[in-house]
Structure formats: structure tokens, C-alpha cells
Amino acid sequence: MTLEILTPERKLFSGDVYGVQLPGIDGLFEVLDKHAPLVSALKTGTLKILKDKHSTVSYSIQSGFAEVLNNKTTVLVEGANEA
């Protein structure tokens, strides 16, 4: 699965990943390979990139949106810092 994380200032991350865990408005959810199409609002919280089954990278994000389409997840957030 391809993941892109974008802020108004820059592209924070772009690459192939195992999955991503996102802080949705109604709670955490996870997107893995071949996930169904989805658009979701995100709240301030922690985004975890699952690089593989044993390696993760975390970012503290501000609110935004996530779109999943054709095995690509695009995350648009107001701001983010590596946790």
C-alpha cells in the first residue's frame, strides 16, 4: 500500500507501507493493503505508520482528512511532528 502524508507546508511522508493507524473522529482505525475506498475526518492525535509487521513510526497530528482509494492512502493534516 502507498501512503502519503501532506501538510500545507510540505510532504511529510511518501512511500510503501504495511499499513497505517489513524485517529478518526469516532476512534482509532487501521488501513491495511487493499482496504475498501474510504474518506474520513481525523482528529488531533497519534498517527502510526506500520512500515512492516514489526516496525512503526509515529507522528503527532492535528486535525485533517484521510482518503483511501486504489490501494493508496492520502492523509491531509493541518500540521504534524514526529513523535
Rank of each mutant, 00 (worst) to 15 (best):
R10W: 03
E4A: 08
A66Q: 07
G19M: 04
M1D: 06
G19A: 10
M1A: 13
L76M: 14
S60Y: 09
T74F: 10
V31K: 05
F13C: 02
E9Y: 12
L76E: 03
G45Y: 07
I5G: 00
V20Y: 03
L6Y: 03
F29R: 06
T73G: 04
K48Y: 01
D26A: 12
A80V: 09
F29P: 00
S58E: 14
E9P: 02
K72E: 13
A80Q: 04
G27T: 08
T44G: 04
G79Q: 12
L50T: 04
I25D: 06
T46K: 06
A36P: 01
K53I: 06
D52Y: 11
S40T: 05
A36D: 07
P23V: 05
S60R: 13
P23Q: 10
G24I: 03
H54K: 14
Q62H: 05
S63K: 14
F65Q: 09
D52V: 08
T56Y: 08
Q21N: 10
L42W: 01
Q21I: 12
L6R: 09
L50E: 06
N70D: 12
T73M: 15
G19T: 02
T7D: 05
A66W: 02
G64N: 04
P23E: 05
A41L: 14
V17Q: 01
F13W: 13
S14W: 07
G19D: 02
G27C: 12
I61D: 00
S60W: 07
V77T: 13
G45R: 12
E82S: 07
Y59R: 05
T44N: 14
K48F: 02
D26E: 13
Y18H: 06
I49C: 07
L50Y: 13
V57T: 12
Y59M: 03
N81S: 10
E4Q: 14
K53H: 11
Y59I: 03
L69S: 12
L50A: 07
S58A: 15
P37T: 05
S63E: 12
I25T: 12
H35M: 11
E78V: 06
G27A: 12
L42D: 00
L22Y: 02
E30S: 13
I61G: 00
S60D: 15
E9D: 11
A80F: 07
V31C: 08
Q62P: 00
T2F: 15
N81A: 08
T74W: 11
P37V: 01
L3K: 01
E82H: 09
P8S: 09
Q21E: 11
G64H: 02
T2P: 03
G64A: 02
F29V: 03
E9A: 07
L3S: 01
